[in-house]
Computed example of a mutant assay.
Amino acid sequence: MRVTYSDNTCLVVDDFLDQDAFERLSKSVQYIDYSSIHDSGWNKPYGPPGLPIIQSAGVLRGEKESTPSGLGLIGSFVEDLRNAQTPLSDGPGAGVVGSRILTGKVVAMGAGAGLFWHADTDQVSGAYVYYLHPRWDSSWGGELMVMDGESQLGVAAQTQTALGDGSRPDYEAVGAVIGPDFRTDPAEERRMQIGSGRFYAARPNRLVILNGQVEHRANPVLPAAGHNFRCSLVGFAIK
């Protein structure tokens, strides 16, 4: 385990697991069940339905615990991450390590699939991405992009709750980070004003921890990836 990058928004750790543990976990995700990311409705940060994006069931660790069938190794990973010590408990990792509830699920993206710019809701103190694919080339895309600075705008999920009457939220008036459908809101204006940030390749056995305010996206997987999927274990620390 070695820390590659760290600031108040992002922690990057390479060779997170020893090689044997990584190979066991990487192989295990080939045998679990997946469904479309859009099965329960349009999950807008992942783009329009029809793109090759699949997900596993989710695990929970902390005050609430759940381990769906076949996800024992995923559950162990999430539990170990939640109970980790330094250097993971420092900086942005403090929002994940020791969290009240930590989630985890596998998300796999094929060629053409990515993740739009977004920040997480105020119910999330941190998030993580851990790359499970056994190989990834720099020409295959799928980089994690992190915007400079921290979001100071509202969040669509908060707006929906605040209205409380089932009507469509007035995203533009509140300044949502996620949404609306055509992405013409103050959050997009802010992104264009900043226009800079960092990227992290989807290197196997790499763990990236983000705080709850930084805006981020995943570059689309490029056609050069062929039939290879960008396979990651992702999760959120729930306040």
Rank of each mutant, 00 (worst) to 15 (best):
2 R>V: 10
2 R>G: 10
3 V>S: 13
4 T>H: 14
6 S>K: 08
6 S>H: 11
7 D>W: 04
8 N>F: 08
9 T>Q: 13
11 L>V: 02
11 L>E: 04
11 L>F: 12
16 F>V: 10
18 D>W: 01
24 R>H: 10
25 L>A: 09
27 K>R: 13
30 Q>C: 14
30 Q>V: 02
31 Y>C: 13
32 I>M: 09
33 D>R: 14
34 Y>Q: 05
36 S>K: 01
39 D>K: 08
40 S>I: 02
40 S>P: 05
40 S>L: 04
41 G>A: 04
41 G>I: 03
41 G>P: 01
45 P>M: 08
45 P>R: 02
47 G>S: 12
48 P>T: 03
54 I>E: 07
55 Q>S: 04
61 R>H: 15
62 G>P: 09
63 E>K: 11
68 P>H: 07
70 G>R: 13
70 G>D: 12
72 G>Q: 15
72 G>K: 15
74 I>L: 13
75 G>P: 05
76 S>I: 09
77 F>A: 03
77 F>M: 06
79 E>H: 11
80 D>L: 07
81 L>N: 02
81 L>G: 06
81 L>E: 09
87 P>T: 09
87 P>H: 08
89 S>W: 07
91 G>C: 00
93 G>H: 12
93 G>D: 11
93 G>E: 00
96 V>F: 06
100 R>D: 05
100 R>H: 04
103 T>Q: 09
106 V>P: 07
107 V>N: 07
107 V>P: 02
110 G>T: 06
111 A>I: 02
113 A>V: 01
116 F>P: 05
116 F>H: 07
120 D>M: 03
120 D>C: 11
121 T>R: 15
125 S>I: 14
128 Y>L: 01
130 Y>M: 03
131 Y>F: 15
135 R>T: 00
137 D>Y: 10
137 D>N: 09
137 D>W: 06
138 S>V: 05
139 S>H: 07
139 S>L: 09
140 W>N: 00
141 G>F: 00
147 M>D: 01
149 G>R: 11
151 S>K: 15
152 Q>C: 07
153 L>K: 05
154 G>K: 01
159 T>S: 15
169 P>T: 02
175 G>S: 10
175 G>I: 08
175 G>L: 00
176 A>L: 01
176 A>K: 01
176 A>N: 14
179 G>P: 15
181 D>Q: 06
183 R>P: 06
185 D>T: 07
187 A>W: 00
189 E>P: 04
189 E>M: 12
190 R>P: 11
191 R>C: 11
191 R>L: 15
192 M>D: 12
195 G>T: 03
197 G>P: 06
197 G>V: 13
198 R>C: 04
201 A>H: 11
203 R>H: 15
206 R>K: 06
207 L>Q: 03
209 I>E: 04
214 V>G: 05
217 R>N: 14
218 A>V: 15
219 N>A: 15
222 L>D: 05
223 P>H: 05
225 A>W: 02
226 G>Y: 09
229 F>H: 09
229 F>C: 02
230 R>S: 12
231 C>N: 05
232 S>P: 11
233 L>D: 07
238 I>L: 11
239 K>H: 09
239 K>M: 12
